[in-house]
Design a protein around this nucleic acid. Structure first.
Lengths: 339, 339
DNA sequence: TTTCGCAACGAAAACGGTTTCGTGTTGATA
DNA sequence: TATCAACACGAAACCGTTTTCGTTGCGAAA
């Protein structure tokens, strides 16, 4: 077991000082050709690599990005991580991933763990519990310490920082309009509680589309499920108690699940009823019929977030200007709607 | 912007030495009650937290685990990460995630980035390119430096380290046996190239089950797709050219996709043809019909991996004993097979 | 011969902690 | 009164770098 070699080791072995070694390896002008060559050769031979931790301590830069998300087993979030990772790695940054598991406490704990020097900045999406409690002191504390934060997707106006979202309202509007244009008049919505920023925006888009097209919004056609869990019975009931010819769902699981229910009732998709969901994941692609969705472009979102964060991290300026980037959603038409 | 407070700050403010502050905050017996209380109160007031980097440098322990996986947008791997994270966080460790994107080079680069002090150990699953090249020098170098490694799922015998897998052969055997027991005699297999350790083992299990039940293995019923990508045409051809009444797939995407093809051909599932896949993910649960699968217990695998790694990291002993843990797969029966 | 400048290198501080090993002060003991 | 332990604290080394600021030695200029 050959342990890692340090500057000190090289210095001792070559009978020079540590500073000389350090400078030689950086090709400093201060050091003579001979000495540099000797040191560089030795370092190469023994495969010297500077210790990241020591460098971090010295520069007060870790080259680590902390990512805190509600759930890692979730297609949208993993695509965001992929985007973050892609951009960050190319810039020499590593990504530390923590999942809050939709819990406020775990979100706070994770941030505290990372905020004590482990990372240069945060990229995060709020847990549902946090959005429900509406308590953002952990975020404020971090930003007050000068640690940059980028919020994506599930954001809040309560904290000043950079933000990246898609235009959720527009997405829902596009979806609803698509169905209206195809002659649907009784459009249902399956969503989650309103405290989730994205669900709220999507509901607004849905309402807007209906109103603009002179359809009245029948509240009985809106089903609010708590959190992201499936409540089979509720959906079943909703589906039987109301008369609809199209359904917009705020995620793909709701959509795929409800499609199955519809099929069991003997309804043909998309002839009798059409479906549109959010999130362009595996489920939508491989569902039967495949699901028309509003794509949220998770990877792009991750890349943009990482870019904004790294810019802040690397900028010396103490500017207190924050921006919110709004990405355009896209309608991906598949077989759950008429073509 | 209130910057982080350090021991030195406290010492200066309270006119004691840094050592006294350090000891007081650790509740050392050496320090008098009065002084301790004063220091602790002050630290609490200013919300002092020790700097992780400084501690890492001192103890040569980062409390970070490096996870290198082939793909992060993949249900199985994300469940493994969830397991790792759960166990690791409970023990005060953070998880740095890097995806190799199935590329040998990226795997090497990621490991080199992390191996210079950023992490205490690796948990990883080999990229397909690495398994194909059969080159494991980057792993060997790391282990020779005394950095513990745990391999999971996609492993190799070429490197000595702890390993965690499920019994893939048994899983495939169970699946094939299930279909045989239900009277199926013409069982197909859709898999990937053999250089992937898991596919190889699953193919063996499939063969074993057939042979043991006096069915001959018809090679034309085995379809090998390159990598994890879907080749629509190939599946279509395969499906039309061979006569089968059951299909075993090495992942859920292959299975769900092929199910759709079967349905388009007018076959009823599971009456005419039955399906079993690997990986108990969303796709299997929400497919129509829902897919019977061999569950790989990703989360458990992650927890076990993390446990093994952390034990190695925290054990002083230089024992060179490595173990391979083999988890039992489970058959999850759903609607794509007869009950 | 003295002085100056420059090339080439080393000493030391700093990053923020932990820890070992003093050291000065006290009160009790012989 | 001299001795000694116990107590309470501080100095300094150390982890592995980077970087500033000397400090040499030498050749050239005066």
């Amino acid at each position: 077991m050959k342990s890692k070699i340090t500057l000190k080791d090289i210095a001792r072995e070559l009978e020079v000082s540590i500073s000389t070694v350090s400078k030689a390896l950086k090709n400093s002008e201060e050091i003579s050709r001979d000495t540099k060559e000797k040191i560089q050769a030795f370092a190469k031979l023994y495969n010297y690599r500077p210790n990241n931790i020591a460098i971090s301590l010295k520069n007060k830069r870790t080259k680590n990005i902390g990512v805190v998300i509600p759930d890692i087993v979730h297609h949208f979030f993993t695509t965001v991580i992929r985007g973050i990772e892609k951009y960050a790695n190319a810039r020499g940054y590593n990504v530390i991933v923590c999942s809050s598991d939709e819990s406020f406490d775990r979100e706070v704990i994770n941030m505290e763990m990372l905020a004590n020097g482990s990372i240069d900045g945060f990229i995060m999406s709020l847990s549902s519990e946090t959005q429900q409690k509406n308590d953002y002191n952990h975020l404020k504390e971090v930003t007050e310490q000068g640690i940059p934060v980028v919020l994506f997707d599930r954001i809040t106006n309560e904290v000043e920082c950079d933000k990246v979202i898609i235009d959720d309202q527009l997405g829902a509007y596009m979806a609803a309009k698509k169905m209206i244009d195809q002659g649907r008049k009784k459009i249902g919505l399956i969503t989650t509680a309103d405290y989730l920023s994205v669900s709220k925006a999507r509901t607004q888009g849905y309402r807007k589309a209906l109103v603009e097209h002179n359809l009245d919004v029948d509240e009985s056609r809106i089903l609010k499920l708590s959190s992201m869990e499936m409540d089979e019975e509720l959906i079943q009931k909703f589906f039987e108690s109301t008369d609809i010819d199209a359904v917009l769902c705020v995620n793909e699981i709701f959509a795929v699940y409800t499609m199955r229910l519809a099929q069991k009732k003997g309804l043909r998709i998309p002839e009798d009823i059409s479906f549109i969901g959010f999130t362009d994941g595996f489920l939508s692609q491989y569902a039967n019929p495949s699901l028309t969705v509003i794509a949220q472009h998770g990877q792009k979102m991750g890349e943009v977030s990482a870019q904004m964060l790294i810019e802040k991290v690397e900028s010396e300026a103490e500017e207190e200007t924050y921006q919110t980037k709004i990405l355009e959603p896209t309608l991906v038409v598949r077989d759950s709607t008429i073509n």
